[in-house]
Amino acid sequence: MRTSKFTDSQILAILKEYESGQTAKELSRKYGFLYQTLHDWKKKFGGISSTKELQKIKELESENNRLKKMFANLSLEHEALKDVLFKKVVKPATKREVVNYLVSEYAINIRQACKSLNLERSSYYYHSQRKEDTELIGCLNELSEKHPNYGFKKMFHSLRNQGFPWNHKKVYRVYKKLGLNILRKRRRRLASRERRNLEVPSNYNEVWSMGFMSDSLFNSRRFRTINIIDDYNREAIWIEIGLSIGAMHMTDLLEWIVKERGKPKAIRTDNGPEFTSSVFTNWCHKHRIEIRYIQPGKPTQNAFIERFNRSYRTEVLDARIFNTLIEVREITAEWMEHYNSDRPHESLQNISPMQYLLN
């Protein structure tokens, strides 16, 4: 850009001489410029009487230009950020990809893009020096095939004993990446049981059968029931309903029933954790009650309670929608009274359990 050979203060002095009465041609000959230039100076510096005013005007112009440039940059950054709002930009690697996108799609430089995404430029230019984990992956896969029961610690120390230099953090990172840290559910070992024929007791209150059931309320909350019947006349002794029924709860219930009704000689159950717990077995041993476990996977050996559970499910649990446990308990109590007193039972010659007991 071509610049004038006169400074601003010199131009203001020439304009003052022009205003004092000298002509443009005289001034042009005196100072050596084209007399038309004087008119351009008048347009530019007209009304300015001192260099201080001129300096203020120049400062205002520079500030105005700076603000315009800032506004343009912010508008551009705003438009660019609107384009990437749908992306989840959290990790540095993702931010680097977005920066590259903004630089290629918009007239924005790397510094602006990094600043708008709150990313340090050193992080943008960083390149990972991590080596590939191919060798470590192969070693871990080989160990897991040879020793499937090995956990992380055993695998790590095995690799160290073989002379590999990887530290525990790297080994654990790859170990988790391969999914080797998934917990394996161990199958519960059940004791072997002797088969016992299912016989109808000869007397009342001789053998009880017990079993658990589960269902859900209208709000999808699960609840459990424990059903107890007398094998002699299939009488429903009690149905306990609760969100959780553990061994302690069960033995407290049996203690109350024994006080009200008397104790049986034996109780037939499956191999559930509540029935095999020490709490239940100790309670039976204390009251000298025999526990008759069925064989695992043989529910027909406990057919009396299984048939009762089916009736309870079809006539109560599946027939209604319950909102609260209170509703379940009330309807169950009504059904138990009907079941024991009025409902015909095919195996009892189509009479109710209480009628069979009285006969």
Results as ranks from 00 to 15, higher is better:
residue 238 W to P: 00
residue 73 N to Y: 06
residue 199 E to V: 14
residue 235 E to N: 07
residue 162 Q to C: 02
residue 142 E to D: 11
residue 106 Y to A: 03
residue 239 I to K: 09
residue 334 E to F: 13
residue 305 I to T: 04
residue 189 R to L: 13
residue 188 R to I: 13
residue 147 H to N: 05
residue 15 L to F: 08
residue 347 S to C: 02
residue 323 N to W: 09
residue 208 W to V: 00
residue 234 R to E: 12
residue 180 L to E: 12
residue 312 Y to M: 06
residue 206 E to Y: 07
residue 100 N to Q: 00
residue 211 G to D: 02
residue 116 S to N: 08
residue 312 Y to F: 05
residue 277 S to W: 02
residue 172 Y to T: 09
residue 19 E to L: 06
residue 40 D to A: 14
residue 265 K to L: 14
residue 191 A to I: 06
residue 269 T to H: 04
residue 74 L to G: 05
residue 340 N to H: 15
residue 2 R to Y: 15
residue 141 N to I: 01
residue 167 N to G: 05
residue 218 F to Y: 12
residue 322 F to Y: 15
residue 357 L to T: 12
residue 52 K to F: 12
residue 325 L to P: 01
residue 311 S to D: 10
residue 254 L to W: 01
residue 155 M to G: 00
residue 270 D to H: 12
residue 219 N to R: 02
residue 46 G to Y: 01
residue 302 N to E: 06
residue 180 L to P: 15
residue 329 R to G: 08
residue 354 M to C: 14
residue 245 I to K: 09
residue 316 V to G: 01
residue 117 L to T: 07
residue 260 E to D: 08
residue 168 H to N: 04
residue 196 R to C: 10
residue 237 I to G: 15
residue 317 L to W: 02
residue 289 I to H: 05
residue 112 Q to L: 03
residue 71 F to L: 14
residue 148 P to R: 10
residue 113 A to C: 01
residue 110 I to Y: 09
residue 267 I to Y: 06
residue 292 R to Q: 13
residue 66 R to V: 05
residue 307 R to F: 09
residue 42 K to G: 12
residue 30 K to Y: 09
residue 10 Q to R: 12
residue 315 E to R: 01
residue 277 S to K: 03
residue 234 R to F: 05
residue 246 G to E: 08
residue 81 L to T: 01
residue 286 K to P: 03
residue 309 N to S: 05
residue 131 K to C: 01
residue 213 M to G: 06
residue 34 L to K: 10
residue 358 L to E: 14
residue 41 W to A: 07
residue 86 F to C: 12
residue 58 K to M: 04
residue 225 T to C: 05
residue 18 Y to C: 05
residue 266 A to S: 08
residue 33 F to G: 01
residue 168 H to F: 05
residue 112 Q to G: 10
residue 303 A to W: 02
residue 216 S to E: 14
residue 23 T to P: 14
residue 81 L to A: 00
residue 14 I to N: 00
residue 209 S to N: 07
residue 163 G to D: 04
residue 333 A to K: 12
residue 50 S to T: 15
residue 211 G to C: 07
residue 95 K to R: 00
residue 286 K to S: 03
residue 275 F to H: 06
residue 91 K to T: 05
residue 227 N to Q: 06
residue 30 K to Q: 13
residue 291 I to L: 15
residue 188 R to M: 11
residue 306 E to R: 14
residue 195 R to M: 14
residue 257 I to R: 02
residue 134 T to V: 11
residue 59 E to H: 10
residue 129 Q to H: 05
residue 177 K to I: 03
residue 147 H to R: 04
residue 246 G to P: 03
residue 122 S to M: 15
residue 179 G to I: 04
residue 284 C to R: 00
residue 204 Y to D: 06
residue 100 N to F: 00
residue 283 W to Y: 10
residue 323 N to Q: 11
residue 207 V to F: 00
residue 284 C to H: 00
residue 328 V to G: 14
residue 118 N to E: 14
residue 252 D to R: 08
residue 249 H to Y: 14
residue 355 Q to T: 14
residue 67 L to K: 08
residue 329 R to L: 02
residue 73 N to W: 00
residue 102 L to E: 02
residue 112 Q to V: 05
residue 83 D to K: 07
residue 261 R to F: 04
residue 248 M to H: 08
residue 319 A to R: 13
residue 61 E to W: 12
residue 19 E to T: 13
residue 211 G to Q: 04
